[in-house]
Each structure stands twice: as C-alpha cells, then as structure tokens.
Amino acid sequence: MKFRVKPVHFLEAFMIILAFLYLFPILFVFLSALKPDAEIMLHPLALPSKLYLDNFVKAWTVMKFPKTVLTTFLITLFGVAGILLTSSMAAWMLARTNTKYSWVLYSLFAFALVIPFQIIMVPLSVLASDMNLTNPQGLVLLYWGLGAPMAVFMYHGFVKSVPKELEESAAIDGAGTGYIFFKIVLPLLKPITVTIAILDALWIWNDYLLPLLIIKQGTLQLAQMAFNGQFLKEYGPLTASLVLSALPIMVFYLFEQKYIIKGIAAGAVKG
C-alpha cells in the first residue's frame, strides 16, 4: 500500500510544531543547566559546548538535595494522602445525601475556589503559629484544609456519575457505611483519585509562599531561592536546581498522566 498524504497528516505536523513551542522553554532550562553562566549569556540557544556538570554539583550541595527532596516528598505525600482521604469521604457523603444541608455545605466548599491565597496569607500564618503548626507536620495539616475545596469539588462531580445501585445493594445486605465507602466506593473513584493526586502533588511540590511562611526552609522551592536572588541570579546553578527539583514530579506525572484525562473529565465535566 502506498503512503498517501492526508489532511490529517498536515494537522499532525502542525500540532507537532505547536508542541515544540510548548516544550521549547523547558528544553531551554535543561540546556542551560549544562552550561557555565557566561555561555548561557553569550549563546543562550546553542547546545552546550561540552558536558558541564558543575551547576548540578553546586545546586546539589547548596540545596542539600537528598534531605530537601525527602522533606518535600514527605510533605507532598502526606499532604496529598490526607486531602484525598478527607475530601473523598466528605464529597461522597455530600453527593449521596440529598438534603438542604449537603447543598449548603457543598456550596461552602466551592466558595473557596474563588479566594486568592494572598488574601488569607497573614491571618493563616498567625493562626498556624498560634496552634504550634509551624513545622512540617503542621504544614501538612494546613494543606489538608487548603486542598479540600478543589478536591471536594472534583470528587463530588465524579461521585454523581457513579451508579448508586452497588452501594444500595450492599447496604441492604447490611454493610456499614464505612465498609461501603472504603471497600466499594473508593475503588470506583480511582480515576478521579489519581487525577486529584497529580494536581495536588503538583501544587504542593511547587508551592513557595505557604512553606516560606510556615516552615521557612527545607523544601525544594525554598532552597532554590539561594540562586534566585532579588538582585543576583545565577542562571547556571538556578536552572540546574530547577531541573533537579522538577524532575521527580515530572517523572511522576509522566507515569500517571494516562489517568488524568479520565479523572479530570469525570470530575470536572459532570460537576
């Protein structure tokens, strides 16, 4: 069979070019990380003239990378896990009870989607200090509260698209609510769970302002600031630190991304 050029091939070619534009700045970061500062300034777009790893060495040591990445990982892990657990429970219950209260509570959660974080920043940090939460554990707790609105919003939508029959028959068989939720409902929620997990992981991993106010140092985003001064920007080590801190989350995203469509679609579209 002969290959024939169809319109769809043009379309695909065009999309690939567009995709390159999307990817280009990210490639640029990777390229720069492999060059000395002077070379970045002189030939920003050229390939590295030789393999230059000093930036990574510097970024690794100054950021105390292994410890920092572990801290960030744990905060992200526990933060996400807590959001998933508390929000899925709340959202399921809200979606399955058809009372005035549940509608009011659901609206209350959705209300926060439109509040900019900077507005609650100072009172929140004072509160956290009053409750002795200015430590990584406390930060995790704060994330559970701050992550709830989006997660409840998305879970709520998804639960509505899941048929009730299974739960009802289990209830008739005498299963407790806890059993129904954890054994029957939660597995059904997997696509949306993965989606929320990805989105919240991205958010917590990349968050800067809240960790700065609460634990002051120790996460990747905060450690990067050593290179990203108000005045002085060391582009080489900075880009290397960007690569180091973004790689884990990128790998995570790439592994899990096939779920994201299913989840976002179900959660968002039917919300």
Binding site: V122, L213, N228
Partner: peptide, 21 residues
C-alpha cells in the same frame, strides 16, 4: 539557623511579626 529571604522580605517579615515570632 540561617534563613534567607531575598524576595518577599517585607511580606514575610510582616507575617512573622504578626505571628509574634
């Protein structure tokens, strides 16, 4: 423990002052 805040210094210090810490 050394804490560097090159950006947002005013904001962070205000928040810290409000925390009393």
């Amino acid at each position: 423990d050394m804490l560097i805040i090159p950006n947002d210094a005013d904001a962070t210090m205000s928040a810290r002052a409000a925390q009393g810490k």
